[in-house]
Amino acid sequence: SAVVMEEGSPGEVPVLVEPPGLEDVEAALGMDRRTDAYSRSSSVSSQEEKSLHAEELVGRGIPIERVVSSEGGRPSVDLSFQPSQPLSKSSSSPELQTLQDILGDPGDKADVGRLSPEVKARSQSGTLDGESAAWSASGEDSRGQPEGPLPSSSPRSPSGLRPRGYTISDSAPSRRGKRVERDALKSRATASNAEKVPGINPSFVFLQLYHSPFFGDESNKPILLPNESQSFERSVQLLDQIPSYDTHKIAVLYVGEGQSNSELAILSNEHGSYRYTEFLTGLGRLIELKDCQPDKVYLGGLDVCGEDGQFTYCWHDDIMQAVFHIATLMPTKDVDKHRCDKKRHLGNDFVSIVYNDSGEDFKLGTIKGQFNFVHVIVTPLDYECNLVSLQCRKDMEGLVDTSVAKIVSDRNLPFVARQMALHANMASQVHHSRSNPTDIYPSKWIARLRHIKRLRQRICEEAAYSNPSLPLVHPPSHSKAPAQTPAEPTPGYEVGQRKRLISSVEDFTEFV
């Protein structure tokens, strides 16, 4: 048969007729292969192709491409040299491709048809291009793949890379869960390890502090508590009631339409708007009261037996805890006409967050109470924005700035309102402590230090009264110190430094 060459192609190359033996071998191979691939376009007849790359030819070592076609129900084999250009295909004639002069020997084609199974398996396991790669995943090629499931790999992101949580363990979102698992493993320790309690022994800490320079003076030496005195035992138990972190309780009120001037209507609300609910979820963490331990979680007086509701929101960081007394989460009882059960919590909070959804101005004093010092007013606006402002009593104007209003988005509203309420509550605590000038409020841990110092002074006084020969370590507060001759004046800087060093040991009130 003659071949018409394309323009620009090399000279004529004689194409030899395939021997009958080659056709029989390739026909047997075509019957084993699956003929249901995917359909081509209507211009080209339905056909199945599979590209198999052999590394070497037997005796020649030339890479070839073998295409199996099922045109007219008769499979045909096409061998081509890759750099050459194939002729145009037609549905009426068999596929013809040019070969190099080196394939002119018909014996070479017979060798190609009689490829060993080793070469076929190696060509099938190679990388296939384009559409033949999808075909190689079918059941027909499963014989050339190794048996057994593939090893499982770690989760992959859409980009093909490992997620960040699997790369950096410290930033993994499941870090707290692993800590819980470690605690569970520790709890399952053997009885021999049960006595080993991690941490620092208080006796060891005391020993280090006792021999430090801070205890060089007799006034700073630790003293032993009497065991037989019940009054001192009660004082030590009272110390446990003062937490070592700051605590805040903040009221949250929802004002519906037409309720801006009605205290009873505001306290009777059992739910609010959708934006109000989203605002609550951002204030803190939802907790169930019956599962809380009052000595570990500050509840601000809420009952854990269901008297004040089942849930509330709280927030904490390293040095403070805040609980929100939310009116809509507290039960509304029919027998309580004046809502006294709610007001006994909300009316005693220094700061209230008022979500004013009424469309009218909310005035300070609508919720009557002796300790309502500051109101954080949240007014929802259009386009997911809110107006946040402050209202306070006249005696609080020096501590709280009420002249600045803020426009905040719904997303950042819980954070801004919480921070403003916490700052206002700190100012309210300082303002409330002014009624007792001898006990200015600095912080909870300073209050613990003052309680310890008062307890020490009482013990020293009782020891001096029981044994008059012992001198008083600290003179009583009601006694007057003996007159001392004025010492020589020293520079102001040295006096300030000495006073600062003494105050650092005794108390921190002056620095606050």
Results as ranks from 00 to 15, higher is better:
Glu218Val: 09
Ser219Asn: 14
Asn220Met: 08
Ile223Val: 12
Ile223Trp: 08
Leu225Val: 14
Asn227Pro: 10
Phe232Glu: 08
Phe232Gly: 06
Glu233His: 10
Arg234Met: 09
Arg234Ala: 12
Gln237Val: 06
Leu239Cys: 08
Leu239Arg: 07
Leu239Phe: 06
Asp240Phe: 03
Asp240Thr: 04
Ile242Cys: 07
Pro243Phe: 04
Ser244Cys: 07
Tyr245Gln: 06
Asp246Met: 06
Asp246Asn: 09
His248Arg: 02
His248Glu: 03
Lys249Asp: 15
Lys249Met: 12
Ile250Asn: 01
Ala251Gln: 06
Ala251Leu: 06
Gly256Thr: 03
Glu257Arg: 09
Glu257Cys: 06
Gln259Asp: 03
Asn261Phe: 04
Glu263Gly: 03
Glu263Phe: 02
Leu264Val: 13
Ile266Trp: 03
Asn269Ile: 01
His271Cys: 13
Leu280Lys: 01
Leu280Pro: 00
Gly282Ile: 01
Gly282Cys: 03
Gly284Ile: 06
Leu289Thr: 14
Asp291Asn: 14
Gln293Ala: 13
Gln293Tyr: 10
Leu299Asp: 15
Val304Asn: 12
Cys305Gly: 14
Gly309Val: 12
Gly309Gln: 11
Gly309Thr: 12
Trp315Leu: 04
His316Thr: 15
Met320Cys: 15
Val323Met: 06
Val323Asn: 07
Val323Glu: 14
Phe324Ala: 02
His325Cys: 04
Leu329Asp: 05
Leu329Ser: 06
Pro331Ser: 06
Pro331Ala: 05
Thr332Leu: 12
Lys333Cys: 13
Asp334Ile: 14
Val335Ala: 12
Lys337Tyr: 13
Arg339Ile: 12
Lys342Trp: 05
Leu346Pro: 04
Asn348Glu: 14
Asp349Ser: 09
Asp349Glu: 07
Val351Gly: 00
Ser352Phe: 07
Tyr355Lys: 00
Tyr355Pro: 00
Asp357Trp: 00
Ser358Gln: 01
Ser358Val: 01
Ser358Cys: 03
Gly359Asp: 03
Phe362Cys: 03
Lys363His: 12
Lys363Gln: 12
Gly365His: 09
Lys368Gly: 14
Gly369Lys: 05
Gln370Ile: 13
Gln370Tyr: 13
Gln370Met: 14
Val374Ile: 07
Val376Tyr: 01
Val376Cys: 03
Thr379Leu: 03
Pro380Met: 00
Pro380Ser: 01
Asp382Lys: 02
Asp382Glu: 12
Cys385Ser: 13
Cys385Tyr: 08
Asn386Lys: 01
Asn386Arg: 00
Leu387Asp: 03
Leu387His: 06
Val388Ile: 12
Cys392Val: 13
Thr402Asp: 10
Lys406Glu: 05
Ile407Pro: 03
Val408Arg: 01
Ser409Met: 03
Phe415Tyr: 03
Ala417Asp: 00
Leu422Tyr: 06
Ala424Pro: 00
Met426Glu: 01
Ser428Cys: 15
Gln429Pro: 01
Gln429Asn: 08
Gln429Tyr: 08
His431Leu: 13
His432Arg: 06
Arg434Trp: 08
Ser435Cys: 13
Ser435Asn: 14
Asn436Trp: 05
Thr438Ile: 07
Ile440Gly: 06
Tyr441Lys: 11
Pro442Gln: 07
Pro442Val: 07
Ser443Thr: 14
Ser443Phe: 12
Ser443Arg: 09
Lys444Phe: 06
Trp445Tyr: 06
Ile446Trp: 08
Ile446His: 07
Arg448Ala: 09
Arg448Ile: 04
Arg450Asp: 15
Arg456Lys: 12
Ile459Trp: 14
Ala464Tyr: 07
Tyr465Val: 13
Ser466Met: 13
Asn467Cys: 14
Asn467Val: 14
Leu470Arg: 14
His474Gln: 14
Ser479Ala: 13
Ala481Gly: 12
Pro482Cys: 12
Pro482Tyr: 09
Pro482Ala: 08
Thr485Gln: 14
Thr485Ile: 11
Pro486Glu: 09
Ala487Val: 07
Pro489Tyr: 08
Pro491Ala: 14
Tyr493Met: 14
Val495Trp: 12
Val495Gly: 15
Val495Ile: 09
Arg500His: 14
Arg500Met: 07
Ser504Glu: 14
Ser504Ala: 14
Phe508Ile: 15
Thr509Trp: 05
Glu510Gln: 12
